[in-house]
Write a protein that binds this DNA or RNA. Sequence first.
DNA 1: TAGACGTGGCC
DNA 2: TGGCCAAGTCT
Length: 352
Amino acid sequence: MAGLRHELLRWYDQAARDLPWRRTRDPYAIWVSEVMLQQTRVETVIPYYERFLKRFPTPATLAAADEDAVLSHWSGLGYYRRARLLHAGVREVVERYGGRVPESAEDRRALPGVGRYTAGAIGSIAFDKPEPVVDGNVTRVLARLFGIDTPVGTAATTQRLWDEAARLVPGERPGALNQALMELGATVCTAQSPRCGACPVAADCVAHRRGVVDALPVARARKAPGAIALVAVVATSGKGRHRSVWLVRSEARLFGGLWGVPMVQRNGCGGDARAALREAGISARLAPEPAARVEHVLTHRRLRLEVFRATAARAEESDTRRCFTDAALEEVGVSTLTRRLLAAASPSRYTA
DNA sequence: TAGACGTGGCC
DNA sequence: TGGCCAAGTCT
């Protein structure tokens, strides 16, 4: 175990990528990075992280911001509930802990949006505490290293992985050790085409010895996303540079808290676009035919959309219904799907 | 426990 | 191209 730690740390010291969040020990900045990195690639996160920290450099600035401002800085990153939970978590830190991220593992873990992984990442990286982390990378590395061939996601396998991670982390530089495991999984012990020749612990690796690296970890089968047919309406007011678009905001689980074009599930008949407008409380003259068809694939759903244009009369705005100029759109949270729909309805005006 | 929850890149 | 994957959390 000591030899393994030593090899991992030695390798990490010479192979670690220079990433923005590795240039700080600020627990808040580490927290932001860890939330952004959930299920999201490093290269994707970097520009978001830079912008977010520039706009919200401290817990106090984030806590004081309104949700639209927070979501606008998350726009395009996906899994938007992360942003709302981070916002809530940081507000709690400001209110209950004077703006300092709690060093107590228990208190940290109790914050909204902070699960077992994120709590351990902040604890080890920012506070140098010997707290384990198990993410997708660590799962792959440990499954191969120890030859764990039970399916990932079961209670027993999860327990085994956290146990192994917890055995590994005590000692010098627990934060570096955890990051070494993750870095190894991200750059060497990869899901596709692992580079065992470059691995610092190949000699200790059960899967390598047995020639089953490609077979581990054993993933659970996942279902292909089911398709859903929808109708979306891009309703605009005004002309030329003064033109603006009507968006609604919902608390639905999907895209909750974001602004988007009125949309309803299609039932086959013709009047669906009108239903979308009615539901949104917008009166508008609807184009007879869809302007475009858009397919948007999520992890669990395949969305097939018909996009209609409509011309709206100036109408009442509310908390959940507003008319946005291009500039105003940049101040709120908007999904990539919404950007695509706007671009599809008006290719010259919006870019996806 | 299994499913919801975004997006983009890769082969 | 369609499926898989990427520093998870919540319900």
